[in-house]
Design a protein around this nucleic acid. Structure first.
Length: 590
RNA sequence: GGGCCCAUAGCUCAGUUGGAUAGAGCGUCGGACUACGAAUCCGAAGGCCGCAGGUUCGAAUCCUGCUGGGCCCGCCA
């Protein structure tokens, strides 16, 4: 529809050019839906954008956008009557009111596409990889991981809905120093539980959490020979412990969340399969690897006079905008974490994923420039969604969490108390780059303070109407473009437009990687429906004795329910219920 | 010292990528059902869009400099 209107406008502008009012070459103009409905269905800023060119072409003393607007209006040809009305407003906006039948015609898309309504092919078949969560397999996930999980999953869905060919990956950091700390902690706990061997003391840097005992129990069930020293057991133990945590904590939590990954990519395999060397060789081939003495870091608590630089093999990320070159190998010859991450992203590109999206917590923000630099050097494009951390609150008080100290609230607890639906919506209630206060008490309340109920109720209410129509009158919704002209109330036309805005919303949320927009769309759309419902419940009901209106409104309600369903289940991964459970505390004693 | 993010109603936050009179929820006050579900809705009050400049037809939005808050900086992961 928009392209149809745009064409009409373009032709009018061409005629202006032909009549000498505008130059042949002109700046692009905007045509979009204004937020104020009084300004029509589309507003065009052509007269303002082109006012100077107009003045120059006509030799006028000073620009006159309203006169130009009038000239454009005079040259609009609209044989099919697509435009109901064109107005000149404000400084020179063209406000276009589109004939309603065009909207009704467009509403057939919901009928045809059903649960696919909202899909676009703006990025048809583009291979995109979304990497998210990537929590270390050293303990249970906490609420911050939860936010990343929801943002990543929703972004992946949005990209799929806008035509991308998406792969979801979870990078498993199963190599490096932290993993050995986990292995040692498990070993120590195992000796403690077992009792038949001298107790190995827990090191202060080991993971202290209670959950380590669960891992130790599971390990003991494998009958390891505890008489052997840690050094001999640590490699298989590392593998066991990270694997156990991945399976029993991380994957279980993701399952509760309804989040699916296509692949769990092990960091360890990068080292084992020498993928790291391949990536470094590639960078070397581009002349981006060198031996350097790095300057002392700035702003860190370090005495510059005592700093002794050591030559290290670095990748020259400064060539791509990073503030300093980054080491690939440590003094002891081991690869750095960054080197492994480069190898991982090299592998992604190697597999044909040119467009990469990573979802990171804001505490990794300092890492962004070097990773982007590296990916750019390897010929890919990397977009990084940084989400601000979650401040856990309880009854208005900050609730400290730390992975080492045992007192943190797990994602599991949150999911079990608040439920997956509420938690998902809660995490998307704010833009990702805003810090989020997550009040455990509030999440547990399970009442109207949680917007998910409002949104789900809107869908349930639509379904209730459709159910009622079928049960009482045997009526089923069906699409008939001409019959929809019975929708004459302004609220009805408004709802039609909101439904039709859905595909565009999905596309723009995908393009900007901003999943929260879907939640706000849902809230606004459902609020509009509740308002319509309540306002006319006594006068203009959906189900009435007027068969024309009833059938048109039934289709409207059906299309709305379908759209809400698609947004909820298709994009947010939240249940769209046909009916709500009994409200809590409604036990009307008497 | 430096980088990234944030600052909008009393509180929590949106703001269609630069458009017209800046919106919603909660809270406050006042209203609406013999039900297609009142788990809802309607109305009122509430604003120097942190401050100061700049860019232009036009700025909450873009650029610069301040102020205040969050995250961060190394051969860690």
């Amino acid at each position: 529809m928009k392209t149809e209107i745009a064409k009409i406008l373009e032709r009018a502008l061409d005629r202006c050019a032909k009549d000498g009012l505008l130059p042949a070459e002109r700046a692009p103009v905007q045509l979009d839906a204004p937020k104020n409905p009084a300004h029509g269905d589309f507003a065009c800023n052509a007269a303002m954008v082109l006012q100077k060119q107009h003045a120059r072409a006509t030799g006028a003393a000073k620009p006159n956008p309203r006169a130009l607007a009038q000239a454009i209006v005079d040259r609009i040809e609209d044989p099919d009557g697509a435009l109901e009305k064109v107005e000149i407003a404000g400084p020179g906006f063209l406000n276009l009111i589109v004939a309603k039948r065009l909207f009704f015609r467009e509403l057939g898309a919901v009928w045809r596409e059903k649960e696919r309504f909202g899909h676009t092919d703006t990025a048809r078949g583009r291979k995109t990889m979304v990497e998210f969560v990537s929590a270390n397999p050293t303990g249970p996930m906490h609420v911050g991981h939860g936010r990343g999980a929801v943002i990543g999953d929703t972004v992946a869905r949005l990209l799929e809905w806008s035509g991308h060919d998406v792969l979801r990956e979870f990078y498993v950091n199963d190599a490096g120093g932290q993993v050995w700390r986990l292995a040692h902690a498990v070993y120590a706990r195992a000796t403690e539980i077992d009792g038949s061997v001298p107790v190995e003391p827990l090191h202060p840097d080991d993971y202290q959490g209670e959950y380590v005992k669960n891992v130790a129990q599971a390990w003991l069930a494998q009958k390891p020979d505890l008489r052997k020293p840690f050094e001999e057991l640590k490699e298989p133990l590392r593998k066991f412990a990270t694997g156990w945590i991945l399976e029993n904590f991380i994957k279980e939590d993701l399952k509760l969340f309804g989040i699916r990954f296509d692949r769990f990519f092990s960091e360890k395999t990068l080292h084992d399969e020498d993928r790291l060397r391949a990536a470094v060789a590639f960078l070397e081939g581009k002349g981006l690897v060198a031996e350097e003495l790095l300057p002392p870091p700035k702003g860190v608590d370090i005495d510059e006079e005592e700093y002794v630089p050591v030559p290290l093999k670095v990748v020259k990320t400064t060539r791509y905008g990073d503030e300093r070159d980054r080491p690939l190998f440590k003094t002891n010859g081991e690869p750095t974490y960054f080197a492994a991450d480069i190898a991982y992203h090299f592998d992604k590109i190697d597999r044909g994923y040119q467009r990469l999206v990573d979802v990171w917590g804001a505490d990794h923000g300092g890492y962004v420039p070097r990773m982007k630099a590296a990916v750019k050097a390897m010929g890919g494009e990397l977009e990084i969604i940084l989400f601000q951390l979650v401040n856990l609150m309880k009854d208005g008080q900050p609730y400290r969490m730390s992975k080492r100290a045992a007192n943190f609230v797990t994602l599991r607890e949150l999911l079990e108390t608040a439920g997956a639906d509420a938690t998902r919506v809660f995490f998307l209630l704010r833009r990702g780059d805003m810090a989020l206060d997550f009040d455990i008490g509030l999440a547990q309340k399970r009442d109207m303070d949680n917007p998910v109920f409002y949104v789900q109720y809107g869908h349930a209410r639509c379904r209730a109407i459709l159910r009622k129509a079928k049960e009482d009158r045997g009526l089923e919704p069906a699409y008939d473009s001409d019959a929809l002209s019975a929708l004459e109330l302004p609220e009805e036309v408004d709802l039609v437009k909101r439904i039709l805005a859905f595909p565009e919303l999905v596309a723009s949320a995908a393009q900007s990687l901003e999943p929260h927009r879907v939640v706000f769309y849902l809230q606004e759309t459902i609020a509009a429906f509740h308002g319509y419902y309540t306002k006319y419940k006594k006068t203009e009901r959906v189900i009435s004795d007027d068969p024309r209106k009833t059938s048109a409104r039934l289709y409207l309600v059906w299309a709305l329910a379908q759209t809400l369903h698609n947004a909820l289940e298709g994009i947010l991964g939240v249940t769209a219920p046909d009916r709500m459970d009994e409200p809590p505390g409604e036990s009307e004693s008497g």
